[in-house]
Amino acid sequence: MSEHAIEVTVNGQRVGARVEARRTLGDFLRLDAGFTGTHLGCEHGVCGACTVIVDGLAVRSCLMLAVQADGAEVTTIEGLAAPDGTLNPVQQAMRDNHALQCGFCTPGVVCTMTAVMADGETTKDGLIAAMSGHICRCTGYQGIRRAIRQLTGNAGPAGEHA
């Protein structure tokens, strides 16, 4: 089994490590880089909890090898708020709308929404479509939908924004 020296920029910080070829990006972020905000649920591409932003794109970090991220820029949930703790708009909207309960799925959800919006997606339907890649076992998704409506300036039908 081969080992590889890699260098990945995580949240603006250079992280070097020697990793086994089979190390996933998700495990690298948690175990080698110490960014434990990235959550691994299923570890085989089904739940979306592990989603991070790699070179601007939302990807499942359990479906990418760490060695493949050599030279890449990765943003995790830890990298989204401002240094003074001010939440990014997606985080704020999630908070305003009670869009999380246990919070296990949340880092992935927030990373997807942040990446998709940074890529120019501004419609409610576009964001909701991107959410099909996430499973949330707690919220029933309604809070997440409200957060999306808030983010896209669409108040939604009366009575739906409790």
Partner: peptide, 11 residues
């Protein structure tokens, strides 16, 4: 689960 060990090359 974690993958079984393997070698890796990126041509």
């Amino acid at each position: 689960m974690k993958a079984a060990p393997f070698d890796y090359v990126a041509p």
